[in-house]
């Protein structure tokens, strides 16, 4: 408990705010944890998320479509083009990694006891 005489100290201007916070924070935190763990919260969050995704979908699609048309008109690669190139680069990287693995294996000094060919 906070001593009433210590509630306001002009040399600690934030002290009174701290007292209020200390007195209420734990209860507030517990209440909020109980709230977010409730069935109602889970349901409403899922519903809101779903509504947002559904409502923003057509708008997003329209923007993407017009952007693709604009980029194509300007002879510039679209996001899809860049994505396809990036995927191909990753595949090439994997091939290179496979080759490196085989090189590492062939360049490894023979283990003691191994018969040289």
């Amino acid at each position: 408990m906070t001593n009433p005489e210590e509630q306001f100290n002009p040399l600690d201007p934030t002290g009174i705010l701290k007292s209020v916070r200390d007195a209420n924070m734990d209860a507030w935190a517990k209440m909020m944890v109980n709230l977010v763990q409730s069935e109602a919260y889970a349901e409403s969050t899922a519903a809101m998320l779903d509504a947002w995704l559904t409502s923003s979908g057509p708008f997003q699609k329209a923007v993407e479509s017009s952007m693709s048309q604009t980029m194509a008109g300007l002879n510039l690669p679209t996001r899809d083009d860049m994505t396809r190139i990036a995927e191909r680069l990753t595949n090439i990287e994997m091939r290179l990694d496979d080759i490196e693995a085989k090189l590492d294996e062939s360049l490894q000094p023979p283990k003691p006891g191994d018969q040289g060919s």
Binding site: E39, A42, D50
Partner: peptide, 8 residues
């Protein structure tokens, strides 16, 4: 709790 909810 959230992800197991059928609406999620």
């Amino acid at each position: 709790r959230w992800s197991s909810h059928s609406a999620f």
